[in-house]
């Protein structure tokens, strides 16, 4: 008789547990307000990434097309993947001193692992993160970027 009882108790316990499970999915089925999916290409206008989002390395330029990069190359040595190449020139200042200025700051997005070391170690805060995230391109060479804009120069007081 005891085994008879456990047989039916098992069935009803099992059925109850199944119904509890079904109540969860059933509840979500009838509450479409809880849908969490974002409609991505449609919400592009309103989609705002967080300020700190590490999308793309960039070099902020001010309105006079001036940046803060001295071309010291610390970011290049700190980058674990070699995704930064700094090509610098030496120019002669009017007072006869020689000064290093940046020629090209090349950034390979294809190799970057977004470890934040270049931004963190930059002594003159010349680098920052951009919030763009749509990086897909048809040609790999487009992922190699020159961060300093053409014709840009360094802000005066940076050493």
């Amino acid at each position: 008789m005891n085994s008879f009882y456990t047989y039916f108790a098992d069935i009803f316990r099992g059925l109850k547990s199944l119904l509890i499970g079904m109540s969860v999915t059933g509840r979500y089925f009838f509450s479409p307000g809880q849908i969490v999916t974002q409609q991505y290409p449609e919400n592009r206008k309103t989609l705002k990434m967080f300020d700190r989002f590490k999308g793309d390395l960039m070099m902020p330029h001010d309105t006079n097309n001036q940046h803060r990069c001295t071309g010291c190359g610390i970011c290049e040595t700190n980058c674990p993947n070699g995704s930064i190449e700094v090509i610098s020139d030496r120019i002669e200042l009017p007072d006869g001193k020689k000064k290093r200025i940046i020629d090209k700051h090349i950034y390979h997005l294809s190799m970057c692992t977004f470890c934040n070391l270049c931004v963190k170690t930059c002594p003159s805060d010349a680098l920052a993160w951009d919030q763009t995230f749509e990086h897909a391109v048809f040609d790999r060479s487009k992922l190699t970027k020159i961060l300093n804009k053409p014709g840009s120069s360094i802000i005066k007081d940076i050493e």
Partner: peptide, 10 residues
């Protein structure tokens, strides 16, 4: 559609 609604999807 049914499974999507049950899984909080569209």
């Amino acid at each position: 559609k049914v499974c999507a609604f049950m899984q909080n999807r569209v």
